[in-house]
Every structure is written in C-alpha cells, then in structure tokens.
C-alpha cells in the first residue's frame, strides 16, 4: 500500500515535471519568435512616422505616396526606387542593424531599423 502510494506520487511528479518542461519550452519558443518578428523598418517623413513594416515578412512596398519603394528580404531592408535626382538612398544598399537608416534627403524621408536584438546603439 505504502509503496503503491509512493509510486503514484512519483508518476504525478513526472507528469508535473513533463508539463512544466513543455510549458517552459513553449514559452521560450513564443518569446524567441516574438523577438525575431520584433524587428521592423520604420518609415519617417520629417519627424513623423508614416509607416512600419515587419522585417520578418519579405515584400516590396510603395511608401510616402509612391515617391519611394522599399524591399524587405531576409530580415533586411533596402530602397529600390526613389523619385530623386541622385539616388544616393538606393546606393546605400541593405541595412539590418538597430538604428541603421537609409535616407532620401530630397524627399525628406528616412527608413530606420528598430526593435532588433542587436546590442549596438550606432553603426558607422
């Protein structure tokens, strides 16, 4: 009797441990994936945010009423079209680090990376 009781306790313990482990792993996965999708490209005109796009979703977007077009791929973003004379913004290429930005001066527009897991405050 005594040993059976002990055995059921052991089984319950094991079940409890298993459940906790699953919960823990589940939470870890959820938090991790949340972190990963936390990065986004913020589109600013002057000091006003006009749009933001998740870097976790690949895509091509017209921004600022069509003056510029950005592409998001593999967690990076770049400018692919711009209605400006020098196209410096397109030449800047891909960005992906926290606070890194692409600037299109003629359109007074910037695209800034925010919400990554990077530990950098600035990238030069």
């Amino acid at each position: 009797m005594d040993s059976r009781k002990r055995r059921t306790t052991l089984v319950r313990d094991l079940v409890l441990i298993a459940v906790l482990l699953c919960l823990g792993i589940g939470l870890l996965v959820v938090l991790r994936s949340h972190n990963r999708t936390g990065a986004y490209a913020v589109v600013m005109v002057q000091n006003r945010e006009i749009a933001r796009y998740s870097l976790a979703v690949d895509g091509v977007y017209d921004i600022n009423g069509g003056t510029n077009k950005i592409e998001i791929k593999d967690g990076r973003v770049r400018m692919i079209e711009a209605a400006c004379p020098n196209h410096l913004c397109i030449r800047q290429g891909w960005i992906r680090f926290e606070n890194q930005s692409i600037v299109c001066l003629p359109n007074r527009l910037s695209v800034i990376v925010r919400g990554t897991d990077d530990s950098y405050d600035y990238v030069l």
Binding site: S119, Y120, V123, L124
Partner: peptide, 27 residues
C-alpha cells in the same frame, strides 16, 4: 554607448565594435 564599425568590403557586416562614453567617434 556601443558603436559598430562596418566592414568596408561587406558593409552589411561589422568589422569591430567600440564601447564609448563622453567622446566623439568619426568614421
């Protein structure tokens, strides 16, 4: 403040990082 200096050959990657305070950093 943490500053990442890009790798000139591959500006999508960093070459080094610097931990700086109360100073200027120009690249």
């Amino acid at each position: 403040f943490t500053v990442g200096i890009r790798d000139p050959l591959n500006p999508e990657e960093l070459a080094l990082t610097l931990n700086l305070a109360d100073c200027s950093c120009v690249t």
